[in-house]
């Protein structure tokens, strides 16, 4: 395997060092987009170079690439699925503002579409709306109770 000469590795190392200088110098300019590209974009380029030339992933059996990429994908999944929740937490009670907005919006749409407010829930609606009402009641119950997190559940 391999077949690379030491000179080749030194060449890669020189490229990596140049990239390092760029990634330090770029953010000094203070322009956000340049910072983003030089600091993080170059990190990916450096990682690619190390993987390909130092770790020999280009000549390794494909299954190794698959298992490494799979575990990276799981981390992407973790970030992608958790961040919409955690990124929107706010304040000491870590309330999810986006979720709250969605609930308020949904309730407003429901009120207009259904043509009924909370106060005129008569017997005539019982069959259809009992379920929703019940869920709402339960949620409100939690609000009063000791569960701080329940604010946006209903």
């Amino acid at each position: 395997m391999g077949g690379h000469s030491p000179a080749h590795y030194v060449r890669i190392w020189v490229i990596l060092c140049v990239l390092l200088v760029v990634s330090i110098a770029g953010p000094e300019l203070g322009i956000p987009i340049v910072t983003l590209i030089t600091a993080f974009g170059i990190a990916f380029v450096k990682a690619y170079l190390v993987c390909k030339h130092f770790m020999h992933l280009d000549t390794e059996r494909p299954i190794v690439r698959y298992i490494l990429i799979t575990s990276l994908m799981f981390m992407l999944l973790f970030f992608a699925a958790v961040s919409p929740d955690v990124l929107n937490h706010n304040g000491m009670r870590w309330e999810n503002q986006a979720a709250k907005a969605a609930v308020i919006h949904g309730m407003a749409v429901g009120d207009h579409g259904g043509g009924h407010g909370d106060e005129h829930h008569g017997e005539d609606h019982a069959g259809d709306h009992h379920g929703d009402e019940h869920a709402d009641d339960h949620g409100d119950g939690h609000d009063d109770g000791h569960h701080e997190e329940a604010a946006e559940e209903h």
Binding site: V64, S71, M75, F78, F79, S83, V86, L87, H89
Partner: peptide
């Protein structure tokens, strides 16, 4: 060793993902 690195990727992935989420907010 490749499997070990896989398990390390997810450990560091967890730290970095948590850090990123805090950092962005």
């Amino acid at each position: 060793l490749w499997w070990l690195l896989c398990s390390e990727i997810v450990i560091f992935g967890g730290v970095l993902a948590s850090y990123l989420m805090f950092r962005l907010t």
